[in-house]
Simulated scan of single mutants.
Amino acid sequence: MATNQQRREAAKRKLERQLVRRAERAKRRKIVGAGVVGGVVLIVAGVVVWVVNSGGSGDDTAAASPPPSSSSSAPPVPTLTNIPTQRTAMPKRPQPVANPTSCTYAADAQSPAGSKKPAVPEGKNVSSTGTVNATFKSTAGDIPVTLDRALAPCTVQAIKSLIEQGFYTNTICHRLGVTDLQILQCGDPNAKGNVETDGQGGPGFTLPDEYFAGEKYGRGILAMANTSQPNSGGSQFFMVYGTAELPATYTIFGSISDDGLKVLDQIAKTGIGTVGQDGATGEPKNPVKFTAVTVAA
């Protein structure tokens, strides 16, 4: 049987072995920890090098990249989509307008007429029956149209008056759409072919709204432009040669002839030059100017 002295010595040796094993384990942990830290440092350093060399991501990319040129910052020019061949049916009023009717043309200081200062149309005893045939002679070809008094007597009265006063002669069509909004917009007396400033002018007076529920805009439709405010139409109008998914808030006042649509198709195929702020429409690539506008006797 072991003596007390022997037991104490055995316990001491056991404790020493435990301390040695603990020290060895601690040493291994330090080695492993140092390796992990070193690996992390290497990984981080590698990522930093990669970020610096590749330009990074997010906001840093914009800062590290060279500034975009004026051409790259401009919106891409839309390309022409398919033009429908089917005409859109002309709308019919659910209730006819009284004949004759009265029209109010309010003064408009927000849409200046520039050097063109037309007289305000006569607003009393305006006919709401019959049609008016007119031809917009342009540098792209003649665009015959038919104005329908039954649809919009006050609008037809105003447009006819402006034509007879020579208001539209030597004005340009400043806005062309070739994708979801296939239109040619004209009638700004101050348009100069500058996509940033065109589209602000008018005749110096406004027209009353004459749209009604159920109106559809599509190939062959002639309608008034406005500022999205009530009774804000003036001299600007748009000719629809294709698709135009729009709310029924633009007065339809006539139709475009087959020959006129052929001219519009050709204008659309020539395409857009400079794109406007909406990124979808812009100045026609080949300027379209009205050289004369006539009303049939």
Rank of each mutant, 00 (worst) to 15 (best):
A26M: 14
F136I: 07
T104I: 08
T169H: 07
P100W: 06
K137P: 01
E24D: 11
G276P: 02
L176V: 03
K117S: 10
D265H: 06
P112I: 01
W50K: 14
I183P: 12
S255Y: 02
A113Y: 06
L246V: 02
G234T: 08
G177I: 01
E24G: 09
S70P: 12
A280T: 11
I221S: 02
A134P: 01
K137V: 07
P230N: 04
P75A: 07
I256M: 01
S235K: 12
R149P: 00
I252N: 12
Y241F: 14
R8V: 09
K92H: 13
E9L: 13
D180S: 13
P144D: 03
Y105N: 10
V293S: 03
I252D: 09
P100F: 04
I221R: 04
C103M: 02
N231V: 03
T135W: 10
L15I: 06
R22K: 14
P208R: 03
I252Q: 14
N170F: 01
A98N: 13
P68G: 03
T104S: 13
V52H: 13
V37M: 15
T291C: 06
A109S: 13
E16Q: 15
P144N: 04
Q18K: 15
S65R: 15
F253T: 00
S138H: 00
S228L: 11
S111Q: 13
Q6G: 03
L80R: 00
G202T: 07
T169E: 14
S71F: 09
L147N: 02
I143V: 15
K12F: 09
G260V: 00
F290C: 07
A280V: 12
V36S: 11
T294K: 09
N82P: 00
E122F: 05
G177N: 08
F237R: 08
R175Y: 03
I267M: 05
G177L: 04
V178Y: 09
S235P: 06
T274Y: 03
L15D: 08
P78T: 04
A292L: 10
V32M: 10
C186G: 11
D198L: 07
P84H: 10
Y217V: 00
V288G: 09
V156S: 05
M90D: 12
V48H: 11
C173A: 14
K124M: 07
Q165M: 03
I221H: 03
M90N: 10
S128G: 11
A119T: 13
D148A: 11
A150P: 07
T197M: 05
T3W: 07
A296F: 03
V295Q: 13
Y211A: 08
L264S: 02
P284Y: 06
